[in-house]
Design a protein around this nucleic acid. Structure first.
Ligand SMILES: [Mn+2]
Ligand SMILES: [Mn+2]
Ligand SMILES: [Mn+2]
Ligand SMILES: [Mn+2]
Lengths: 216, 216
DNA sequence: CTATTTTTTTAGACAAGACTAAAAATTAAA
DNA sequence: TTTAATTTTTAGTCTTGTCTAAAAAAATAG
């Protein structure tokens, strides 16, 4: 597995989480910040290696083997993110770029020992579940904050957008994983909502509410 | 800095530790397990980047900038080795290959936080000194065990060969960093010697004695 | 000081992974 | 159901880092 192959597998895996059926070449190109022609070359190679199924003009789909490899890279990514936050005092908006590098380090022992060292964490700093050794991910029944109705309550358990700017906004507003949130008011016009966290009430836009996961 | 450039710099830096003056193309090729023609290409590139001085047929020498970059890679390599042994229960013969990968991770913050997390260690698991942020290495006045005479004593502080097979041999013989050693007898014929560690006496060959550093 | 051996560099080729431009297949519109 | 727009693939080029084979320079020997 080259670095590039691994990044493609990961991208396709993540797109599959959202979209049904075969993944389009263009969708991969967009996620990978590359051109469709480059994607075509790569999916041919991955197909020959048995990591995805592909027919010309019909899109791609990961095989079981491909899913396993991808889940393992994501496992490494998220464990390293935990390490950076828990042990090296990184903030949750600083970890992603470094984890993008660390996820490609090849050593079974390293990642399993790291897992143990961190106390077998279930989620990364952004609330995303950490796959186990066998590539199984605990499928969460969490829901986006934007779907809650007036007077509904829940606990913040994750973020969909892990960009540094979004995470910094959350920090500033005092929005963090584990906090209880209640929807005070919803504005139908622009889907903004007033929420309460720890007795403080404030407005958030739909865009914000659309990127926060809640456990009811 | 690409991965390959970094590995060349590191190799040249290590050869410079042993050899005086300009480093020959062949010496680099041997250390890098590559061909001289490939080396010529690379040193041209590194030369253009101001990382080493090079004139055709005259060999190469790292610039200050080149030395700084190389020392920083070695700093990362050795800090990661400490991490693997101290925190993740690796043995000293298992760490090198993983550190070869980890040394290329790019993040100032990562390596400085790691340094702090480990308690600012001075040496790696093989007794090699860890360069500081500015690329300074504490030059040790240590001496190879093979140079000791009969009845001389010292403390084992490092190994020259860090190969897994050598380190496993040392483990088996009970030879470890920090132990006191006394030369009981030297055989002029083959330079083997009888040594005492913790009241136990045994023979070691010149090859072994040539790869163990002693502080007198 | 010339001849031979060794070292180093050049020339040309290759694989991986990217890109551009153009062709082919598919999908959407009229 | 033809035509137009979009998506996807092919063809050909480029860069990085590697290789082999051959040429050039330097070192060694006689
Ligand atoms: Mn991430
Ligand atoms: Mn994450
Ligand atoms: Mn090492
Ligand atoms: Mn070491």
């Amino acid at each position: 597995m080259t670095l590039s192959e691994e990044n493609y597998l990961k991208a396709i895996y993540h797109i599959s989480d959202v979209c049904e059926g075969g993944i389009s070449t263009n969708a991969i190109a967009e996620k990978m910040n590359t051109k469709a022609s480059s994607v075509t070359d790569m999916i041919k190679k991955l197909s020959e290696k048995g990591l995805l199924n592909y027919k010309r003009y019909k899109g791609s789909e990961l095989t079981e083997k491909g899913k396993f490899v991808a889940a393992n890279i994501i496992r490494k990514h998220r464990l390293w993110e935990v390490f950076l936050v828990e042990k090296l005092n990184f903030t949750w908006d600083e970890v992603h770029d470094v984890a993008e590098q660390l996820e490609h380090i090849k050593s079974e022992k390293l990642i399993n020992q790291l897992d143990e060292f961190l106390g077998f964490p279930k989620r990364d700093p952004h609330g995303d579940p950490i796959p186990d050794k066998d590539g199984n991910v605990s499928d969460n029944a969490d829901v986006l904050l934007v779907t809650l109705h007036e007077n509904e309550k829940g606990i913040i358990v994750g973020v969909k957008d892990s960009s540094s700017s979004f995470l910094k906004y959350l920090d500033k507003q005092g929005i963090a994983l584990g906090k209880k949130v209640k929807v005070i008011d919803k504005e139908p016009f622009d889907n903004s909502m007033k929420i309460r966290i720890k007795k403080e009430e404030f407005m958030i836009s739909q865009q914000i509410a659309n990127n926060i996961y809640i456990k009811k």
